[in-house]
Amino acid sequence: MATQQGIMGESQMEQALTSKTGRMKARPSASLAVFTWELRHRLFSRSTWIIGLFLVICALGLSWLGQSKDWMDQPANIDVAGTTAFGLMYEMPGVLMLWFAILLPFLSADAVADDIKNRMHEMSMVTPVSSRAYVVGRFLASLVISLLMAVLLLVSVMAIATLLHAQFSTYPEPDYAVIVLMWALVVLPALCLLCGASFMLGTLWPTFTGAAKAVVLVIWLFIWSLGIGLGSTPLGPWDPTSNALSHMFKPYYLALYQAGIQHATSTAERWQVAHSVQGTLPDLTLWIITHVLYVMLGLALVWFAVRRFKRFSDAL
């Protein structure tokens, strides 16, 4: 059995264990320590992998099912492919992000509250890690896990786009840059906002995380349901769920298509025009600005949680 006297006899150990400054020099960032260990903890968790697997299966299945929309030119029966720029304006917020949004509160609301569920909160709170470092580290870990899930979503869409093009000659060749851009535009701001809101509620009311998730989801679904109406109003770019996106830009694509087919003489030419139009990106500057603000709002909510976190004193 090792003895404490043996440990205390070594000056390096003694200084390191008892001196705050000694420890600060050796391990400068508490947030980083909390982040790396929490990330490891989450990656060891079976539920993280189950959620990831569920997400990939859903994303692959839904992308496959959403491969075409039959609205562009009813007489000619020309469809919008689900993985083109315009198709993704429907598919990404209307189907994929809707599913992903339901998962996100489950990935972030419990990031701090899990310590209460695991009855680890007392042991965590008597460590010298500051409240700020603890909360920031936990948020960063949940954000990274959520981002990894979002990347799985992206990869699934890319895989289905590639597969559909390989399977059907009429299916447009995937433009991976456009897919990434639409993903970044639709998924990332929503992810930051949903994670930030869920994390804030779960952190400040750690014994009510179930209610926190429900509140976030109900509000999100309500705003999502407003998206179709918002698309034709000036408020369209402010829709955080991006469900207004396709409705906002539908006139733009229709105008492009109508202009393109004026000189088309055959169905094949109309298909070619349709494919070309679908892959075009409109000016999204206003959309990007508003959604950057949503990213900042998500981070502001986290900062609010950092400032208000009381080291579980209400739960003791």
Binding site: A16, L17, K25, A26, A33, R40, M120, T127
Partner: peptide, 26 residues
């Protein structure tokens, strides 16, 4: 108290050591 069931004892103690701000080398 509870412990993180996903961790082994060694991993858990390393985690707690990091939370207690022990120098990495120790």
């Amino acid at each position: 108290f509870g412990l993180y069931p996903e961790f082994s004892a060694r991993q858990f103690l390393r985690y707690m050591a990091a939370m207690k701000r022990l120098p990495k080398v120790l």
